[in-house]
C-alpha cells in the first residue's frame, strides 16, 4: 500500500527563516460518536498523536481527539537554522505508528 502520509516541506530556505509545513494522513479517525443502523456504537479508532522532529528534536506535537476531522490535516511553522531532515510521525491509539521524512537545505 502506498504511504498514507502526505507532507509539504520547502526544499530550500534561508537561515533562520520560518517555514510553513503541512501534513495530512489518510485515516478514517472514527470518533466513537457514530452508530450503525441497528444502534451499535462504532468503536472509537483515532490516529491520536502527531509528532514532528527536526534532526531528532521535537519541534511540534499534537494530541488529536474525536473533534478532529477524518483524514487529519495539520499545518504549522518551524524556524530552521541549518539543513536537516524533518520526520513526520503519526501514532494511532492502537500504538501503530507510521512516518515520512523530508529534507530541507538551508543556505
Amino acid at each position: 500500500m502506498r504511504n498514507p502520509i502526505h507532507v509539504k516541506v520547502p526544499q530550500t530556505a534561508v537561515k533562520n527563516e520560518v517555514v510553513h509545513l503541512m501534513t495530512k494522513l489518510h485515516h478514517p479517525m472514527e470518533s466513537g460518536w457514530r452508530k450503525t443502523l441497528d444502534g451499535q456504537a462504532v468503536p472509537r479508532a483515532l490516529a491520536g498523536w502527531f509528532e514532528c522532529l527536526f534532526n531528532g528534536h521535537e519541534v511540534f506535537r499534537a494530541d488529536l481527539e474525536s473533534g478532529t476531522a477524518s483524514d487529519p490535516y495539520l499545518s504549522f511553522h518551524v524556524r530552521v537554522a541549518h539543513s536537516g531532515v524533518f520526520r513526520f510521525v503519526w501514532i494511532g491509539e492502537d500504538s501503530n505508528s507510521i512516518e515520512k521524512q523530508a529534507r530541507i537545505e538551508v543556505s
Binding site: R61, E65, G67
Partner: peptide
C-alpha cells in the same frame, strides 16, 4: 458529543 478537539504543543522553535 465529546468536547475535546485537539491540543497542540509549541516551543520557541516554531517561530
Amino acid at each position: 458529543p465529546t468536547p475535546a478537539i485537539a491540543s497542540f504543543h509549541l516551543s520557541p522553535a516554531n517561530g
